[in-house]
C-alpha cells in the first residue's frame, strides 16, 4: 500500500517534469523556427510597399508575385542568371576540390613518404591564419594574372573556391584511416598498382564520406558572399546567388527588394537545406565505420 503510494507520487512528479520539458522544448522550437516563418511570410507579402507594412509579422495580403518577379523582372538583378552562374561555378569547384581532398587524404592516410608530416604541419599552420587576411592579396594576384576582368571572373571564382582544398583533408583522412591496411596489402599481393588500389579499393569504400565531401564542396559557392563579392565587384552579370541576395538588401530602400530578397532566399535555402540533410545522412553512415564486419 505504502509502496504503491510512493510510486504514484514519483509517477506524478515524473509526469509534471515531462510536461514542463515538452512545453520548454515547444517554446525553444518556436524560437528556432520563427525567423524562417518570418522569411517565408515576407516572401509572400503582397500589396503596396508602404513602410508600415513592415510592422506586420504576417502580411495582410498574400501573393506569389515576388517569386514571379524574381524570374521575370531581371533588369536590375537577374536571379536566373545568378542561379546559373552559381550552379556552374559550384559544379566546377566541387569537382576540383573533391579531387584535391581525395588525393591529399589518400597520400596522408595510406602512403608513407618523406614530406608527409611536414605537409600536415604546414596545412595546420595555414589554417591558423585568418582566411580574410590573404583575401585581398589573392585578389591582387588574380588581377595581375588578368583573371578579374570580363569572362575570366567565373574562372577566378572557381579558383578561389577550390584552391584551398588541399588543407581540408582532415575528415576524409580520418575516415580513410579506418579502412584496414590489410585490404591494400592484399591488393598489392595480387599485383595491383597503387593507383589501382586507390581507385578500385579505397575510393569505393569511401563512398559515404565521398558523397558528404562532394555535397559540402558543392554548397560552398552558394553560401560565400565575401570572397565572391570582392572578385565580382560591380560586374553584376557574374554575380553568384549569395552576392545577389546580399545586394538586394542594400537596394531595399529603393523598391520592393526586401520581399524579393526573401523570395530568393527561400528558393536558395530549400535546395541547400535538402542537400545538407543528405550530407548528414551520409556523414552518419560514414561515422559508423568504413568496413563492416
Amino acid at each position: 500500500m505504502a509502496k504503491n503510494k510512493l510510486s504514484s507520487s514519483v509517477k506524478a512528479k515524473r509526469i509534471t517534469v515531462d510536461i514542463i520539458v515538452h512545453i520548454f522544448l515547444a517554446i525553444v522550437a518556436v524560437v528556432w523556427v520563427l525567423p524562417f516563418v518570418y522569411l517565408i511570410a515576407q516572401s509572400l507579402r503582397g500589396g503596396l510597399n508602404h513602410s508600415n507594412d513592415y510592422s506586420l509579422f504576417f502580411p495582410a495580403q498574400y501573393t506569389i508575385n515576388n517569386y514571379i518577379k524574381l524570374f521575370t523582372d531581371t533588369a536590375v538583378l537577374s536571379f536566373p542568371r545568378m542561379f546559373l552562374n552559381t550552379l556552374i561555378i559550384s559544379i566546377c569547384s566541387c569537382v576540383i576540390s573533391t579531387f584535391f581532398v581525395l588525393a591529399v587524404s589518400y597520400c596522408m592516410s595510406r602512403l608513407k613518404w618523406k614530406m608527409r608530416k611536414p605537409y600536415m604541419n604546414m596545412a595546420m599552420v595555414i589554417t591558423l591564419f585568418p582566411g580574410f587576411m590573404s583575401m585581398t592579396a589573392t585578389y591582387f594576384l588574380l588581377k595581375a594574372l588578368g583573371l578579374t576582368e570580363g569572362n575570366m571572373i567565373p574562372l577566378a571564382l572557381i579558383i578561389c573556391f577550390s584552391s584551398g582544398a588541399g588543407t581540408g583533408f582532415y575528415v576524409m583522412k580520418g575516415y580513410m584511416d579506418t579502412i584496414p591496411k590489410a585490404l591494400d596489402e592484399a591488393a598489392y599481393l595480387d599485383g595491383a598498382t597503387k593507383w589501382q588500389t586507390f581507385t578500385r579499393i579505397t575510393l569505393p569504400l569511401c563512398k559515404p564520406m565521398l558523397v558528404y565531401q562532394i555535397i559540402t564542396a558543392f554548397m560552398g559557392p552558394w553560401c560565400d558572399f565575401i570572397f565572391a563579392k570582392l572578385i565580382c565587384r560591380t560586374n553584376q552579370q557574374f554575380y553568384t546567388v549569395s552576392i545577389g541576395l546580399y545586394t538586394m538588401l542594400t537596394l531595399e530602400r529603393i523598391g520592393n527588394w526586401f520581399t524579393r530578397f526573401c523570395a530568393g532566399a527561400v528558393l536558395v535555402a530549400i535546395p541547400i537545406s535538402i542537400l545538407f540533410i543528405i550530407t548528414q545522412k551520409f556523414y552518419q553512415e560514414a561515422m559508423s565505420g568504413s568496413v563492416k564486419g
Binding site: W113, A137, L141, G164, T167, F198
Partner: peptide, 23 residues
C-alpha cells in the same frame, strides 16, 4: 603515386594561398 596526387593540390595551395599569405 604521391608525387602525382600531391602535385596539383600542392601547387594550387602554393599559388593561391601561400603566395598571397606571404605577400
Amino acid at each position: 603515386i604521391h608525387k602525382l596526387l600531391m602535385t596539383p593540390p600542392f601547387v594550387a595551395l602554393v599559388v593561391f594561398t601561400i603566395i598571397p599569405l606571404v605577400y
